[in-house]
Computed example of a mutant assay.
Amino acid sequence: MPFSLADVTLIVHELWPLSGAEDWDAPGLVSGDPTHSVTSIHLAVDAVSATVDEAVERGADLLLVHHPLLLRGVTSVAEDRYKGALLGRLIRADCALLAAHTNADVVVDGVSDILASRLGLLDTRPITAGVAPGTGIGRVGRLPERTSLDRLARRLADLLPATVSGVRVSGERDAVVETVALCGGAGDSLLAHPSVVAADVYITADLWHHPASEAREQAVHSGGTPALIDVSHWASESLWLEPAAEQLRAALPGITVTCSDLRTDPWDFVIVQ
């Protein structure tokens, strides 16, 4: 059964409904002719030159990414600017571009749900409630067995693809942890949420100095929790790609769905002092 880009877009929005997206977000179809046939889809976290080249070289009809290329407003897609150059490359190759961002974060089997599942968390629930039962930003749950903060951080390091920034931890190494709150991607906006404050540890990405420092100072003042674990933004979301691909394969029989394993974390090396 042939599928058009319009058909595929409809399926994508059934799997990851646009109603679940945050108000500031820009998911959906970025470029491509809705009437064109789609026989292959390539998934990546980011639309960057390496993943665009990969999709084109594979002959993909659609590049489905997590992060919207045009999240922030632009006034030009001239090809002397990288976003215009990427779109031009995709258009000339008849490869459409579609993004599923916060609408893929909030759902069951979404970005945070997958990370919670891979950690083995039990009795999970969203940190913030979404429009449908069981949906929402982030997850909070409990580990099957208590462990130390150090061991949990090392488990994360083994679970996530390697990046030069590694896994950063704020808290006592031997602190006992059982309740875990997490948010794939940038989750500093949830640092003061009651479910996060009540957890033994909060796992997220892109923690800046001031929000992290203030959260830890408040934690020390209030009893020591939550500890903080800061991981790579890209790494925390990359675990979603293969489960998302499986969902697409089930919903779109006959279409080839592949996942990028390219590291699109922006950091290339670190100097240890």
Rank of each mutant, 00 (worst) to 15 (best):
D61S: 13
E54G: 07
A96S: 06
Q273T: 12
T102K: 14
D200S: 13
T135Q: 14
F269H: 05
A6F: 05
D7Y: 09
P226D: 08
R58K: 09
S238K: 10
L182K: 02
V30R: 04
V8D: 03
L262P: 13
D33V: 07
L43W: 03
D94P: 03
S37G: 12
P2H: 11
V48D: 05
V106I: 15
V196D: 00
E14C: 12
A100W: 01
P211W: 05
L90W: 06
H233T: 11
T51C: 06
G84F: 02
I255M: 15
A99S: 11
A162V: 06
V106N: 11
V108Y: 00
W234Q: 04
T75Q: 10
V270L: 12
V107W: 00
V164W: 02
G223R: 03
P266F: 12
T102A: 09
K83S: 06
R72F: 15
L190Y: 01
I271G: 00
S238G: 13
T39A: 08
G166L: 03
L248A: 03
L191G: 04
A157L: 00
W208I: 12
P243I: 04
L97P: 05
G32P: 05
A6S: 07
L115F: 14
Q218N: 12
T204H: 03
V38M: 06
L70H: 06
D80L: 07
S49Q: 13
V12I: 09
A251Q: 14
T35S: 11
V107N: 01
E57H: 07
S76C: 12
A244G: 15
A192N: 10
C95N: 03
L121A: 08
S31Y: 02
R125G: 15
A198E: 10
